[in-house]
Design a protein around this nucleic acid. Sequence first.
DNA 1: GCGTCGACTTAACATACTTGAAATCGCGTC
DNA 2: GACGCGATTTCAAGTATGTTAAGTCGACGC
Lengths: 248, 248
Amino acid sequence: MHPPMLEGNLAQPVIRRLNALRQLSDRGIALLQQAIQDGLQRARAGEDIVSEGDPVDGVRIILSGWLCRYKTLEDGRRQIVNFVLPGDSCDACVYLLSVMDHSIGALTPVTYAEIERAAFEKLLAGDRSLAEALWCETMVNSAIQREWTVNIGRRIALERIAHLLCELHERLLPVGMIEDGSCLFPITQMDLADATGLSVVHVNRTLQELRGAGLIVLRDRTLTITDLKVLQGTALFSADYLHTKRRG
Amino acid sequence: MHPPMLEGNLAQPVIRRLNALRQLSDRGIALLQQAIQDGLQRARAGEDIVSEGDPVDGVRIILSGWLCRYKTLEDGRRQIVNFVLPGDSCDACVYLLSVMDHSIGALTPVTYAEIERAAFEKLLAGDRSLAEALWCETMVNSAIQREWTVNIGRRIALERIAHLLCELHERLLPVGMIEDGSCLFPITQMDLADATGLSVVHVNRTLQELRGAGLIVLRDRTLTITDLKVLQGTALFSADYLHTKRRG
DNA sequence: GCGTCGACTTAACATACTTGAAATCGCGTC
DNA sequence: GACGCGATTTCAAGTATGTTAAGTCGACGC
């Protein structure tokens, strides 16, 4: 259906992401590309690709688009617990549990690959570097989750939003989605609020403050970090928890 | 050094904990007990058994005592990101990463088993039920971490503390540390504050409120949940995220 | 071209929670 | 038995953040 060339392009973010954790072998890359090609899927913005309570059937690998993991309280309060970016995979091993404890919703149109449990186990068994990279990614997700707990629990609004922006910047770097400190930023202020545990109004106030300080430009779904060092400073940000090998 | 009987008792919480996730085979239990016996360690209250920045050398399994995982900001603010209870293991697979991104500190005197990387890999390879149970536990830890994010981000103080108490209650049940709704509760109000993202003063106020409502009795390091149903209700608590098979 | 709708923005007000400080209590030490 | 110390408790005052509401802007449909 698609020419091989296109498939290669689609898998680029995933390969770059995993390579930043563990050097993938050629064999691993080939297996991965095949698995991706076999399970291509799309979702529209606003759609949930998995919902809380669903049985866990397999693994999803994001090729393009942004999503978020979130949980909702009975009375409607929502908390986004993580963003899922191109190259990320969802629940590389949550398939050990039987039921999803959270939902994953698309913030933009999304392309992803869905890999059934059996195929995924074959993938893991097929190449050690690939298996390790995927486990690794799961571990990094845990580390991110811990840092979010710290962020929401102990940072004030300004630091908190600054920290989130720093994290997203750092995570988008290895998959090649940052150009000149700018990136597409499809997150609404309401999403930002639900991700930081703040109200929309206060998120807005705080973004104004960051703009006023000349640290960021955020306009037309595009984020530019004008002064990364200072932004990281005000966020008390250190990239260590992302466990990403730096290029070079 | 110790009679086999005593070792069996030491490993009880671990076995019960893992059994609640995956039925362990006899072989798995035997391997586990041997590994535990080989790596017995102690720590005093207040001591860190692992610190942020340390190389990740192996895995620790808690036999008795309470600990917490925590991170500290440059200026001293501290956030506890999880409690570690008897039967829990620390970083069953974080050993895929090279450096700890958080510390683990003992809140009470602690007995634990330290298993080197090689021995641990042999353990995983030696019994499938054991390996699955340990991976499973790691996944549950991620789920707990997500729920903490929700808790701190979207619940008010009263709900937040109630939720934490419900979670601890639920986690202590399968390891047999709840008697008549009561348990040892060695956490200071300051720890509680650092775990919930609140100030000590407000934690105190909120505990008074829970006491006043007749939901809990907390005195002399002992917590009694007087009205579990109502406590869970005010916490908007559902145990689903703990993925624990219920007895019976 | 007008109306609708979602996202963003701003203002005024309310409050949940923090900060700082001091009193009390229990507990182990000298 | 006096002292010191950590944990708990209470008070008073301050502030970061939430809430409610209303207005703007751009995109999109008819």
